[in-house]
């Protein structure tokens, strides 16, 4: 995030960090106790699903707090139109965790924008652990920035008509160089509607991070909300590991087996 400030714990309780091979690579958001919403391009290039970890309840990447939880990934569902009509179009992914998130005041789900959502007069914020300068400086502290929405037609004018598709929306602050940057991908753009926070965008792409005329482009969540709900409601929960034999029961069986072995030798 360029032009942002450190976020306080519990302010963005739906924020997730997607780690690959032990390093933060993307953001995400909690949408259900088993599901994280993120960007498809965070999971492409034949990445090994076993090397992904998801963290929630985190504000400092280097310090786990009292509410920090860590998860392995069970499956990743990439939108079928990802890269089909645009190199980074359909940039949305649902990540199913192996175990359930425990909600608390620091870990909560965000609402998904409904298909008919009208975007006007909104206070919207982007959050992430991406670069904080165009030179690639980073911060371990979660950054937040308020971003004005940019009319879709204006964004088409800035980027070119074929670059901005209906499944995208744009936001950024031209005057103060406030925007999202590398490492923020997959993170949420959220707006407050009558004291309820709704996710309207997923950080997706842009022409660099700090060219004033090129705002950040987000995957438009309302365009994908039916797809999101369909998969959350219809995907089976991950298989849970069978409980291990209790130590007491295990000890009894062990004694019995030993006794039988001794008896058989007599």
């Amino acid at each position: 995030i360029l032009g942002g400030v450190d976020a306080l714990e519990t302010k963005w309780p739906w924020q997730a960090s997607v780690h690959y091979a032990g390093f933060h690579i993307c953001g995400g958001s909690i949408v259900d106790e088993y599901w994280i919403l993120s960007a498809a391009h965070c999971f492409d290039r034949n990445k090994n699903i076993k090397a992904f970890d998801i963290y929630v309840g985190l504000v400092d990447l280097k310090v786990a707090g009292n509410h920090t939880q860590w998860f392995e990934v069970n499956r990743v569902i990439i939108h079928p139109t990802y890269g089909l009509y645009h190199p980074i179009g359909g940039d949305i992914a649902l990540v199913q965790l192996k175990t359930r998130i425990v909600f608390s005041d620091s870990v909560l789900p965000i609402c998904i924008a409904p298909p008919d959502l009208t975007l006007s007069n909104l206070s919207c914020w982007a959050t992430g652990w991406g670069y904080i300068s165009r030179q690639g400086d980073t911060s371990n502290k979660l950054q937040e920035v308020r971003l004005p929405l940019i009319p879709w037609q204006l964004c088409q004018l800035l980027y070119g008509q074929t670059d901005i598709l209906p499944d995208m929306l744009c936001a950024g602050n031209f005057r103060n160089m406030k925007t999202a940057c590398e490492g923020d991908s997959g993170g949420p753009l959220v707006c407050e509607f009558d004291r309820t926070w709704v996710q309207i965008g997923i950080v997706s792409w842009g022409q660099g991070c700090a060219y004033p005329m090129y705002p950040t482009v987000f995957a438009r969540v309302s365009f994908f909300s039916k797809w999101i709900h369909h998969h959350i409601e219809n995907t089976p929960l991950p298989l849970q590991p069978l409980p291990a034999l209790s130590s007491t029961l295990g000890a009894i069986i062990s004694v019995l087996m030993t006794s039988l072995a001794v008896l058989s030798m007599l």
Binding site: P13, W14, V102, D105, S106, L108, P109, I110, T196, W197
Partner: peptide, 27 residues
Amino acid sequence: TAHRHPASEEVAFSRDVACGQRHVQGK
């Protein structure tokens, strides 16, 4: 509940916890 907070801060969360609701702390 598993929350380790003073009783005044405790909030009950069911599996169907409401989305988009920040924890509001009373003053």
